[in-house]
Design a protein around this nucleic acid. Structure first.
Lengths: 203, 203
DNA sequence: ATTGACATATGACACGCTGTCATATAAGAT
DNA sequence: ATCTTATATGACAGCGTGTCATATGTCAAT
């Protein structure tokens, strides 16, 4: 978490700083990013940076969190518009993320260097790391009547599976520079397999 | 790839160096590892390190590749013993990896900091990144008769899905320090969901 | 207006790490 | 014995991080 000093900053200065942080993390992934570049871009001193953030990671995760908040908002919106249909919602959500242009490079650097912590942060967009408050919200919005589960608890595993597969598809999209349509095609095939099962169903 | 000089090394010196590399990457993840520590441990000069490897990553991926080769061997063996049953094989394979003690810390550091490149390397144990020669081998060994696919090509997507879910379970095991049995339980639930489908099947 | 208390800003610096290179040593061939 | 090629070495430049003593700004109280 950024320090209080950061949040006390006047709006315009804060915005300049955020843009500088975003620029650097769009240029290179977390571990290659340089604080020196950020402070040059934002025209602040080295010391100031450390008054605002704990370190490089702190700044990165602040940014990622902001993005995730927006995505979560989008996801919740889609879910209710689709009357709780999880699969329809995931497919629409997937399209929105892979079509994203403004944050393209930031997303690319982030997905291609997805550590456990980054994945967990991002996953809050549409799922939940733990069985926490997030999970309750999602659970209440999802139409469970046509899911292969006997109790709420099992929804958790379904979300885990969908998250895992969705992530892999995000990464693939960026790693292989797929077009939006190619990425969508693969994702649709895999979501269908997920829905219907990988095992041949008995006739 | 390590340089020729490395492969020309007498067996014992090479082994000492590999152990030093392993020790450092067991201590901390790739990006926190220090070449200085490795050369101290192996009693070689800084210059020598660079005669053997391109850089830190080069050493890391060499090690990961070695490990992956062993895993691949294990996987193939299990697959044939299970007469090509993919799910049974994955479950046995999963248990072997999460029970691993010798490489515990190396695996932990690796899984918790799994970038796209690391994932791809490791995935060669039981799947294939691309539709390459690896895929042909796996494809020929897998019993496809009870899989929900109409052609060989679709096997690829099934492997992708299984790989994604398996990875997530590996990561979870290390991230939350699960016992082997807890990790197995979750994995079994998820594999069952994968087999039978996330959607309620029509009665 | 002056003071004191607290919040914020600054950049020089110590420290650690990487990758290189000129030089030294060893090994092998003729 | 000499030349050639392969390997080893550690000093060093360059860069980046996080800290800290110092400077500057803010604001309430007198």
């Amino acid at each position: 978490m950024p320090k209080i000093t950061f949040f006390n900053l006047p709006e315009d200065k804060k915005e300049t700083l955020i843009q500088a942080v975003k620029k650097e993390f769009s240029r290179v992934p977390l571990y290659d990013a340089s604080i020196t570049n950020i402070i040059k871009e934002a025209s602040i001193s080295r010391g100031s940076f450390y008054q605002y953030f704990e370190d490089k990671e702190d700044a990165f995760f602040f940014l990622l969190n902001e993005l995730t908040k927006e995505n979560k908002y989008i996801f919740i919106h889609l879910l209710s518009r689709n009357h709780g249909n999880l699969f329809e919602t995931m497919i629409e959500f997937f399209r929105i993320i892979v079509s994203e242009e403004e944050n393209f490079n930031f997303l690319k650097n982030t997905f291609l260097n997805m550590t456990h912590r980054i994945e967990n942060t991002f996953a809050r967009s549409f799922s939940s790391t733990d069985k926490n408050e997030n999970f309750e919200i999602f659970s209440s919005l999802v139409d469970k009547s046509n899911l292969n589960i006997s109790n709420d608890n099992e929804l958790f595993y379904i979300l885990q599976i969908i998250a895992a597969v969705t992530f892999r598809n995000f990464v693939d999209k960026f790693a292989r520079d797929l077009t939006v349509e190619d990425a969508m095609n693969t994702y649709l095939i895999e979501m269908n397999l997920l829905m219907n099962g990988l095992k041949k169903s008995n006739i």
